[in-house]
Design a protein around this nucleic acid. Sequence first.
RNA 1: GGCCCCAUCGUCUAGCCAGGCCUAGGACACCAGGUUUUCAUCCUGGCGACAGGGGUUCAAAUCCCCUUGGGGUCACCA
Length: 490
Amino acid sequence: MPEPVRLRFAPSPTGQLHVGGARTALFNWAFARRHGGTFILRIEDTDPERSTREFERAILEGLHWLGIDWDEGPDVGGPHGPYRQSERIASHREAAVRLLGEGHAYRCFCSTERLDRLREAQAARKEKPAYDGLCKSIEPSQAEQRVSRGESHVLRFRVPEGETRFLDHVRGEVVFGNREVEDWVMVRSDGNPTYNFVVVCDDVDMRISHVFRGEEHLVNTPKQVLLYRALGERVPEFGHLPLMLGTDRKKLSKRTGDTALQDYRERGFPAEAVVNFLCLQGWALDGKTEVFGVADLVAKFDIRDVNKAGAVFDMDKFLWLAGEYIRRDSLEHVGERCAPYVIRAGLMSQGEIQARLGWFLSVVAGEKERIRTYSELPERIAYLFAADAVLGYEEAAEKNARKHAERVPTLRDFLDWLRPQLSAGVDVAALREGARAWIEQRALKPPQLLQPLRCALTGQAGGPDVFDVMGWLGPERSLRRIERATERLA
RNA sequence: GGCCCCAUCGUCUAGCCAGGCCUAGGACACCAGGUUUUCAUCCUGGCGACAGGGGUUCAAAUCCCCUUGGGGUCACCA
């Protein structure tokens, strides 16, 4: 284990934090914490066109939401800052000049047009598109002259002969023939450095010991290893995480579903469930335990236990996990999390929830084991807020009610019994017991009363105990709904 | 297409590195039954995989090779 242990997560603020990126961050963080190392957040904003502070903020917030913290970063500072690549240009420039002086890089004056033509021709001949090295052999002095004349150019890395091998902690030894690695652009014609260049410069400057990232970066690694060597620096340990796949088995993309962490947050997935699910994509705690938290991850995570094969994102399992967390959570907390969705749906205001917190929590308790995400609550309890006179009946609910031929007389009889019971409000427990006796006395099967009653009160086929529902509705509304059902279910 | 990576139930995975303990374990989903006034929860059971072919070995899911299949990547994006 190289010391000190220093890992980083380096997102580019050109969009929302991707769930795959979130998992990468999580694994890097867990490894750092497991080994008492340092976890660093670095913002890769070298693409000024697409990078925004807005996205940067959203990414930081998303990571915080997952419970990931960092020891060094753009917001907290640290001894190896700045932590935004755009602010590290001076150091990049210095490295570029050095590489150029030592012959590890050269100036390339080829125009974009020539490069395009080159690639076209190569494609036509079914060759791999790659830079042909035209400018490789230009004398440095001659190159400097052309530069002083103001000729536009880029800086390319001079890839040596031979092959490049490195040990990947997920995959084992990986070998690339250097002929497959073209002389890639380090610095653009506008003077801005490219990703493959800065990532190495910054990882060197920040003394990064382990680089764990998505498998899509595997092919970049030889370029970077070569650069570390040219710089005379220690090559970090690598680990390329398997891709997260859509149901089409391709890299998870917007086409196959929500890819932004924020989407899941907005859909009301508990953060702990997201973390848990992300862990399960490519890693397992012990092969048996499915539900576990960050403490277990930190205690057991080993990069060598990460799977090599890509993992298909299984929404069913994700939803199951989310529900599992909600079921295990406290009523108060679930209520608190659900409240914004209830408000957004226009069911209650913040003030109403506060004023009737006991009532609200009772309703939440009734649905807690049924919802899988916080956002599922409003649609499930909307019937409580509907006007009694226009409450709609779901098809399945009405079907269940109409199964019973004697539904209307039964409801009428029940209503006669119920009215006096409700004169002093709803005592749910007493009502439930009373109704049970009532059913028994008439030698009815419970569904004969309860299914029409459920339809009358909720218009839904499923849901919590009907007597709880009456408690929530209160006496007047309960009676009104049952009265109306004696007509509607006729 | 070149290069690189990968391959256990439909899906996530354990087992593989250190070959026998594997009649391949768990979970999601699905199906059946039980509990419940319905739905959900919960409980029980079922379905269901070592991609194919060669080797190595007394013994292979585990090691090697080939085939097939899948994926990633081929920018002055990151």
